[in-house]
Design a protein around this nucleic acid. Structure first.
Lengths: 105, 105
DNA sequence: CACAATGGTATCCTTAAGGTAACTACGGCA
DNA sequence: TGCCGTAGTTACCTTAAGGATACCATTGTG
């Protein structure tokens, strides 16, 4: 049944992507599937530990899927789920606002 | 002249409202001017110290204006600037996504 | 055999964020 | 006189987040 989320939908969203790192991960995954190492490079100054922690949480929340290939060395790919991809509208808003803000300076 | 912001507009936005509390403050100020005490109640479980800190930062970044009335006891009102109000589009996206997410559960 | 590459986990330590409580100014009021 | 309420500031302490480092499994290659 429905898990308990805050009444305010803003708080619900913050609960899922209120973390700076998660937003940046989604930004990069919106362009398509990425390997762990690729994300580590593209997200920016993120440590392996933090990246792993965030990806696990996002998987838990149904925002990304994790696919492990039985190769050596191992290959792990992360892809946005449909729900995760639907965050594109939020990211678009962030991009738009950030661009506007900078241009006003 | 232009201060230095990250190249990525998403990071610029996060730099300004990447904090959970700031988002909630903006959510409440979108309905109109609020007194300090009103915000403290409506934002949720926020301490006076953290609320003050965030409001100061947002004032610094030109998102809110602070107006002090020379009364006793003192009255201080916070209002979104035009720039701050323009975050409505971002908040709308957060509301919309959060609502959708909850309904999928 | 030793090592490289990838995607982790485990441990320890430091730093930053936030909580709590005490204190301030001010004038009104009983 | 002493207390009330608002909107703070300050000091101190606790907790959580994150950094750094070491370690692991696997297998093809030199």
């Amino acid at each position: 049944m429905s898990e308990k989320f805050p009444v305010c939908p803003v708080e619900t969203t913050l609960q899922l992507i209120g973390d700076k790192w998660k937003v940046l991960i989604i930004r990069d995954l919106l362009d398509g599937t990425r390997r762990f190492g690729e994300l580590k490079k593209s997200v920016g100054d993120i440590s392996q530990k933090v990246l792993t922690t965030n990806l696990r949480a996002m998987e838990e929340n149904g925002l990304v899927t994790r696919k492990v290939y039985a190769e050596v060395p191992p290959r792990v790919e992360y892809t946005l789920t449909e729900t995760g991809y639907s965050l594109k509208s939020v990211l678009d808003a962030l991009v738009h606002w950030g661009t506007e803000y900078k241009s006003r300076k």
